[in-house]
């Protein structure tokens, strides 16, 4: 099963390689990875998506915890959260398809960010499932290039 795991780390050199080294060394897979500073400049937040059965996910979170520079590990599957990813997709847009591409983008509340005579580059933001849906729809029209940020995720505030 796919899990989104959020890791708060000391913002120090070499810390990222401790995390990625752990994954490669232990044969855990990383599907996406996003990392940047948090409100506290001494702390970074790393969000990764991975897959595995319960025992593997348990090992992943425990092994992450064991790293001295890791402050907190949260399996976002176990909390209410908002998940977002951004993708820039360059899609073929020639005479016959230009209008259709725009229509699709509009439905998904995307934005055209680069225009050329034969293509549009469009920006899509949403949960990973939405990005996938857009890609599936644009693929028959002709996708030339995709760049994705990887998933980021934040726990929802308590309602009461």
């Amino acid at each position: 099963m796919r899990h989104v795991i959020s890791v708060l780390l000391q913002n120090k050199p070499g810390v990222l390689s401790r995390v990625t080294g752990l994954f490669s060394g232990r044969g855990f897979n990383i599907e996406s990875l996003a990392v940047a500073q948090t409100l506290d400049p001494e702390v970074s937040c790393l969000t990764l998506t991975t897959t595995g059965d319960d025992m593997i996910i348990e090992q992943i979170t425990k092994q992450l915890h064991k790293l001295i520079d890791v402050i907190k590990v949260t399996d976002m599957n176990e909390v209410e959260s908002v998940e977002r990813e951004m993708a820039i997709i360059r899609v073929k847009a020639e005479a016959g398809t230009r209008a259709e591409v725009l229509r699709v983008i509009d439905i998904f509340r995307g934005k055209v960010v680069d225009v050329s005579p034969k293509s549009y580059a469009v920006e899509i933001t949403g949960p990973a499932s939405k990005i996938k849906a857009v890609i599936d729809i644009l693929r028959p029209i002709g996708i030339q290039e995709i760049v994705r940020t990887g998933v980021i995720s934040m726990a929802r505030a308590k309602k009461n």
């Binding site: 070499g14 390689s17 401790r18 080294g21 752990l22 060394g25 001295i68």
Partner: peptide, 14 residues
Amino acid sequence: IVGITRPCTKHNYL
């Protein structure tokens, strides 16, 4: 050496 020993130390420092 910090890179080399990262996976075989409890922790390491430069």
